[in-house]
Design a protein around this nucleic acid. Structure first.
Lengths: 196, 196
DNA sequence: GTCTATATCCGGATAGAC
DNA sequence: GTCTATCCGGATATAGAC
């Protein structure tokens, strides 16, 4: 429920974002959106051409927001290892899952070039940034030279996305945390290694 | 479509398994199941009490099958590292995703204790098995003693589950493979390490 | 811009005939 | 065991009044 101090179009988008996160695209009906936004049929079809159009606006905003948050953490202070650690340990509402990643399990999203694009781009950009950080770490001797930035970046992102799956399966965030700790242990600069 | 040489109940379960994999629980309608199984309304409600009951049978079978496959690979020949490697590199239809893991993104599955149970149990058992393998590897000196079996197991499973997400987001299996290679590189017994 | 009315099809299920 | 008929509400959208 959104305050009447924001306009209807805004409330519709925000309600759709919530529902897409909770129930996915196929599980979200226009009716449910309207109820949550406290809007009528007419408003929705005035501002948007239909469910896919509204979902696109919602997905774009969610993807953009996630990208900005992730980049802020990854571009924060510290060594390469510390920045990746900060990303992995960043606060998350684990049992809700990733609002962007969950869309990849939605058949209608994957089937639509337009709906999938923001998802693909967001993940690609974060992965690229992590890969660069790993390469920097290699140059600084913090990471072993045989590691591949793109591959480690994929492993980092996969651990997060898969961590949500394990957590939701078990009904507890503990599995997410365990996976992150496991990866960090593997990634940690060794005392017996090159540096620190 | 299933041959008429298996009975209707069987065709219903198999059709449901396929649809749950492709479209999830909320995205799968009784009507779609009936069409794929080439069965009528009456048959379905004769053999099952309704959609949740049929889905439960399908989920149980899928979970059991996945568990058996995973355990076969993990209990195969080789060193602990090689067995985990075999699990990670095992052939997969990456873009289809994990038939068990994808269910965790389904709100109605997660909301039902009964539907979630086979998912939770399957993942827990595979994780337990991987954890034991890691502990064995530690005793044999193949893995560093500071690693935690449960944590590494969670990281391994998360890499797989998250790999599906990355692959589906990008529309290519490459990201899955990259994540797996990244994790294996981190996990690999070092030449400069304790063993081999 | 928003409302209400209306339309069509689907989801999920029950009833009873065969 | 399977079929057809029927039911009711929801999903998704259009039309036209206000």
């Amino acid at each position: 429920m959104y305050s009447d101090r924001v306009n209807t179009s805004e409330r519709l988008i925000e309600s759709t974002r919530e529902l897409l996160w909770e129930r996915g695209y196929v599980g979200t009906s226009p009716k449910a959106i309207l109820e949550r936004a406290d809007a009528g049929q007419g408003s929705m079809y005035h501002h948007f051409t239909g469910k896919p159009d509204l979902a696109l606006a919602a997905i774009r905003r969610t993807a953009e927001e996630l990208r900005a948050t992730a980049e802020a953490v990854l571009n924060g202070p510290g060594t390469p290892y510390e920045r990746i650690e900060a990303y992995l340990l960043r606060e998350r509402d684990v049992l809700r899952g990733c609002p962007v990643g969950r869309l990849t399990m939605d058949p209608d999203v994957i089937a639509s070039e337009e709906l999938r694009a923001p998802v693909a781009e967001t993940i690609a950009r974060i992965r690229e940034l992590i890969a660069e950080i790993v390469e920097t770490g290699k140059r600084q001797g913090q990471f072993a030279p045989e590691l591949d930035g793109q591959e480690i970046a994929a492993a980092v992102l996969a651990t997060v996305q898969g961590g949500y799956v394990l957590a939701r399966a078990s009904g507890s965030p503990a599995a997410f945390d365990a996976g992150v700790r496991g990866l960090l242990a593997l990634l940690a600069p060794r005392v017996s290694g090159r540096t620190i």
